[in-house]
Design a protein around this nucleic acid. Structure first.
Lengths: 243, 243
DNA sequence: CGGTAAAGTAACTAGATGGATACATAGCGT
DNA sequence: ACGCTATGTATCCATCTAGTTACTTTACCG
């Protein structure tokens, strides 16, 4: 007991130092762990183990479990925004542009399942961590203004409706994929078939494109019958319900 | 130490017994706690406190934290299925029926925020608990077969497309509302406005109805121009950018 | 080359947490 | 009226967990 101190680190065998790599390993391990178990379910010890690093370093680099979680979140948002920005849709015609955008979003969700899970976890916490973030300013999706431009072009060409809100369009595109992929586990149990199967995913992709384009499409004014028959009673087309 | 035993329950002041009520209080408290914090984040002590009951009884009635969580989940599913079943849409015309169905789903999510959060939590766990449930057989939504009938009627009347999959339609209806409501916290931070505000919610409801009806609507065959321009991309006119 | 700050290790701790134990009693069937 | 079981209370506990302490070592810089 007298020499408890020297015992403490007696065996410490040092490894080659590489702070940047250590940070990255911690982030990657944390991303996997938080995505898998959520914030409360994630274990700092597990993260340290997966990162092949001492737990002490996590606190050294990130301060606390919560701050590490926020760093993971910020990185995840940064990643998708970057990927979105790399997608060049400006030169495409409106229908093609929207199609590619929808398919990109769907594909990104499929290729990055941790992203969905992290966003979900953060929403369980009512965005308490994201609210504290200083880096979110730059995180607004470039897709919204892109969609705005595409919608305008489409409307000018007489292809799209001219009363569309780009925010709603983007949210809807995200929604149709996100919900399916995120909830495919419970949905599979309840529906009794595997929503995650290759062909099911492919079918869903096609349906989403179909839905979005159907919504954007300008109903031809010559086809009054069908439109009238379908026109929404409750203010869908903006007029007041009673009017 | 001799009388440690008698000390143990010396002060036990009994309350009037009401097992059914106790069970319900536990379930209600657990639902709130699990919805708020997720499975890992929820505390059994907190549930006991909120249910104004001794923790012992939770284990007595439900066995374990996990089993309690499953009971809460099953109840939540049972509740929505019941509500869905009470909705009578058979006598409405197809457009009205779909509209009401969409608005009911949206409204249910708004009125029962815990439902979304519980489903989310369960999907974080990849439906591990739901898979073990013996009561899920009866939990398939009556809406799917209802939608199937409505779609058929609509198609016969020439109002709706005849190539629609009721599963996809139902999933899409759920998706458009679920994503918006569940992710409104992070979305609000990123978009910079409150998606949960009264008017924002009202606008979203209208958009969802609009999207769904646009998708179901049969494109009038006379309007070939618009249709061709918008017809589903893949293979139709989506030549590669370089071509 | 040598001192020092950053990077690293091992072991510990205070407090929580799910679950268990020990005991008490209400009230129903008989 | 009486005993037995379901219902209930207070208390404990083994284990886990986020975060800390105490110490070592690398590598860079003047």
């Amino acid at each position: 007991m007298a020499n408890a101190k020297s015992e403490g680190a007696a065996v410490a065998k040092a490894r080659a130092r590489d702070p940047a790599a250590s940070r990255l390993r911690i982030l990657a391990a944390a991303k996997a762990e938080f995505a898998r178990k959520g914030l409360a379910g994630a274990r700092v010890d597990t993260i340290a183990e997966r990162a092949r690093i001492n737990k002490r370093m996590i606190y050294h680099y990130f301060g606390s479990k919560n701050d590490l979680y926020l760093a993971v979140l910020e990185e995840a948002y940064g990643d998708i925004r970057l990927a979105e920005r790399l997608l060049d849709l400006e030169h495409l015609d409106p229908v093609e542009a929207i199609t590619k955008l929808v398919e990109f979003t769907w594909g990104y969700y499929i290729r990055n399942p941790e992203f969905l899970r992290l966003i979900n976890t953060e929403n369980l916490h009512r965005a308490a961590h994201l609210k504290r973030s200083k880096r979110i300013a730059e995180m607004h999706s470039p897709f919204v203004s892109l969609i705005e431009r595409v919608l305008r072009r489409g409307a000018e060409l007489g292809l799209f409706r001219d009363d569309l809100d780009p925010n709603q369009v983007y949210i809807s595109i995200a929604a149709l994929g996100y919900y399916y992929l995120n909830n495919r586990y419970t949905l599979s149990v309840i529906y009794g078939f595997d929503l995650g199967a290759k062909d099911a995913l492919e079918r869903r992709r096609a349906v989403i494109v179909d839905i979005v384009l159907s919504y954007l499409r300008k109903p031809d004014l010559n086809c009054v019958n069908a439109r009238n028959a379908l026109k929404n009673p409750r203010g869908t087309h903006l007029k007041s319900p009673t009017g």
